[in-house]
Nucleic acid binder design. Sequence first.
DNA 1: AGAATCGACCGGTAGC
DNA 2: TGCTACCGGTCGATT
Length: 310
Amino acid sequence: MPELPEVETIRLGLEKHVIGQKIVQTEGRPGRLFRNNPFGLNSVETELNGKVVTGIERRGKYLWMTLSSTQAITPPRLGDNVLVVHLGMSGQVRVCQEGYDEPLAKNEHLRITFADTQLRFLDPRTFGHLTISALQSGARADRLEIENSKWNENRLIPLALEHIGPDPFEEGWPINQVIAKARRSGRRVKTLLLDQGLVSGIGNIYADEGLYRAHISGTKTGRSLSEEQWKEVLEGCTAAMGEALAVGGTSFDSLYVDIDGNPGYFSRSLNVYGRVGQRCIYCEQIIERTVLDGRSHFYCPGCQQIEYLT
DNA sequence: AGAATCGACCGGTAGC
DNA sequence: TGCTACCGGTCGATT
C-alpha cells in the first residue's frame, strides 16, 4: 500500500530514469484509471507525445510529471499541463529496458516509451488514478484557511490536487496551522491523520506507527489532545515515514515494489501495524487490533490508553 | 451550509 | 479443489 515513503521512493527512481528524456510513444488502456480525466485517454496521449520530462514532483501520495515542448530542462510554468498519478492501493510504476513491443499486460493501464527506457503503470485493483491537470499557484491550492498562507506560494500544484493538504516533508509545512485545525475537530485522531485534506501522505500504516510513538490512542478526539500531544503524533508519523523512506518504504505484502521491482524493508521495523498478538517491544503487553471508522487500527493497550466514545 | 459517517469500488489471497 | 470474507484510499451519498 503506497503511502508517502513508498511514493517518494518511486519518485526518486523516476527522476533517475526519465528526466530529460523525450516521449516517443504513449499507449493506454481505456478504463477506470482515467475516470477523472476530463478528456479521456486520448488527451493523455496527445499531451504526452513528443514532450520532454522536466521533473517528477510529489505531494502526499500523489505524483506528477512536468513536461516541456523543448529539449531544455526549464522550470514548470503556471498553466502547464502535467500527468498526475495516484497509485491507489495496488498501483505500481515499473521501468523496463526491453520487451518494448510486448502487448499491454492485463493490469497495465499506461505505457510511456522513451528512446531507451519504457515506463509501465500497473494497477490490478484499479483504485489508482491517471489524469492530466494544469498547474496553479500552491497558495491558491491551499484550503487550510491559513491567514498567512505564504509557505507554499512559490510552488505550482496541479488543479486536480487542490483538495490535498500540506505534506510533512514539504519545506516549511504549516504544522501549527494543521494542529490548530485538528484541535477544532470532534473526529478521532486516527481519522484526522488519514484525512488527506488536513495533512497528506499519511496512510493506515504510518498513522498507527506515529500514534504508537507518541503513546497516544487514536480513539481520542482531535480537540481532546493538547498542542504538544498533536505535535508528538505528527512528528511520530513523520519520523516513521522518514525512517521507512531510508530503507525503500514498507512492503507489507507483495503489492508494493519500487520501479525496479524491489520491495522496501521497513516492514521489519514496524512496532504495531500488523503485529496483533505479538508483544510490545516497550511494555511487553500484547498488541491489539480494532476497527475505527471502518479501518484497521493496531495499538498497544499498555502504551496507548484507549478512550471509548459513546 | 457544514461536518461526520458509511458504503462502493476491486481483485489477490488467506482461511475454510 | 472451490468458495467466501477480508483488506484499504478515496469519493460520493447519506445522516
